[in-house]
Amino acid sequence: MVSRATRTRRRGPNTRVRNETIVAYLFLSPYLLVTAVFTVGIIAFALYISFTSYNLFESPTWVGLDNYRRALGDTGGFLRSLGNIVLYVVIVVPLQTGIALMLASILNKPVRGQKFFRTVFYGPSVTSSVVIASIFLWLYLKTGIINYLFDQTFSLFGAQWTAIEWLNDPRGLFQLIANAFGGDIASEQWYFRGPSVTWLAVMALNIFTTAPTFMIIYLAALQDVPPPLHEAAAIDGANRWQQFWYITLPMLRPVTLLIVVLGTIGAFQVFDQVQFLTAGGPLNTTLTPVYLVYGEALGVLGGGSVIRMGLASAMAFLLAVIIFIFTFIQRRYIESGTERY
């Protein structure tokens, strides 16, 4: 009797929950279907392709782990591109995050013309990356304005500036430092040379375009920091810097995690600037994994090669694994701090 009553009582909410679940899935189904077909399905297909030799036109032939072996061998350029991209991530992500936070903090103050500056700062982010790249193509010319500015600045101090061909200079940062002390680093030891001048130029361009995007996110987060916290700290005698360091920054942690993760993923996948400005050159110092994947997948490397969809897919999966690992580490590191608050 009792048990039946309980059962009857239970059935009501259960049916409702089930019905709600069904309705929810019904509403979700268009999206899920599209995702299943165009994302999950494609990824599964790409995974299969990565174990085959496939040129788009003839049916794929199974080659086992050959593509992975080839990607991780030292001839395909994949390791080189990974080296480049790690340098890129290590330099670009902290800088763009820092600059974004700086810009946002400035804009968060009630300054005159705040809206105007917000628009100006955001400009590079809403402009198409190809347009920005073509503007920088001119700025970076040997006879371009950047060399001109350096030249003018140097001549103020009576020094001589040697014009740099920004987009075609494979000399590495550490190599230049070594050169300054009369040494050199052989080309076989490219991994000790550090990022090339051209690579640094591409990084600068990318920071210029992505920092404002993250600035907007920081700006929104800054406005969510409750003023009473600052007021309380001020009463306790904290100066502005201490307030920023001990209150604002910790409050921004979840947002910083988001920005660092998004920035890292974006940095790992840099492609359009490379395709447009350097095509991986000079001497492979700006070769990136995604550019290599594109080149192998469509057979356009070095002006024309065999289409190797299988190798391209294998590289793409290796890259995905690496991004996943990096993101996971960042998550653990930054989130472990968040939990304290």
Partner: peptide, 13 residues
């Protein structure tokens, strides 16, 4: 061109 010959010509397209 040579690139399309590789991609299409050698694959029966």
């Amino acid at each position: 061109d040579d690139q399309l010959m590789t991609a299409l010509g050698l694959t029966g397209q």
